[in-house]
């Protein structure tokens, strides 16, 4: 599957995602500069992590108005796959492709630690390598990941099953101490109504190889490039 990774000034996880998609999963992968207006036929578009525009104004707010985002919006609205990781998730919120907004972390600190996530949906393409209730370990690295929305909007999000990942403890339990950034309802990742747009704060690309001591994130990126929604052999092919 042709994959495009959008590069903004200040992106810093673009090469990590490229490495996993291209070298680990064997996908045709290209970088797309944010000032371009075409997605060059890419089927999966990744908005990577980093500090686009130095997080000026609000994280992701400047990138949301980059020239390429009009094409990303059209792609998403036509059912195309868009994956936003960390700063990319913030951009998806700022463009309105996903609902909600990010606040500063509850304790105002930049958090760079491993967290545990519970998979809430396994009928999504992205989660086709996981089962509902699975607990994954993934790193987070952000200062603005404290997900917020109105109570009514949060209820609607839950009702429509758009919460895909929640911060939990190692046993998969919802505990306030496991929700480090203070997100409403411990939300770590959400999708749109169609399930083709996914945003999450944790970094699956940083835990996708055995060499790194953790490959819990590989299944997500493998799911993102899965053809026809079926499980892919990528996990077995990657060894371990």
């Amino acid at each position: 599957m042709k994959c495009g990774i959008v590069v903004f000034p200040g992106s810093n996880c673009d090469h990590d995602v490229y490495h996993v998609l291209s070298h680990v999963l064997g996908q045709e992968t290209t970088f797309l500069w944010h000032q371009e207006t075409s997605l060059e036929g890419c089927e999966l578009v990744v908005l990577p992590g980093g500090f686009s525009y130095g997080d000026y104004l609000r994280a992701g707010s400047m990138a949301a108005h980059s020239p390429i985002m009009a094409a990303v919006r059209r792609h998403a609205e036509a059912g195309g796959r868009v994956l936003g990781i960390c700063n990319g998730f913030q951009m998806l919120l700022e463009t309105g492709l996903l609902p909600g907004a990010m606040r500063r972390n509850r304790d105002l600190r930049f958090l760079s630690v491993d967290v545990h996530l519970r998979v809430e949906r396994d009928d999504l393409l992205y989660c086709s390598n996981y089962r509902r209730g699975d607990v994954l370990r993934m790193p987070i690295a952000h200062a603005e990941g404290n997900y917020a929305d109105t109570e009514e909007a949060l209820d609607e999000l839950e009702r429509r099953g758009q919460v895909v990942f929640r911060y939990v403890d190692a046993a998969g339990r919802l505990e306030p101490t496991a929700n480090l950034n203070g997100s409403e309802r411990a939300i770590a990742g959400i999708c749109n109504a169609g399930g083709n747009v996914l945003g999450l704060m944790p970094h699956p690309e940083r835990c996708a190889e055995e060499m790194l001591g953790n490959r819990d994130g590989l299944g997500l990126l493998a799911g993102a490039v899965a053809v026809g929604g079926g499980r892919v052999g990528a996990l077995a092919a990657a060894g371990g």
Binding site: L57, R58, S61, H65, E94, G100, A101, R103, A148, D149, T150, A153
Partner: peptide
């Protein structure tokens, strides 16, 4: 559109 995020 830009200066404020009306959600928060």
């Amino acid at each position: 559109q830009l200066l404020a995020n009306p959600i928060v």
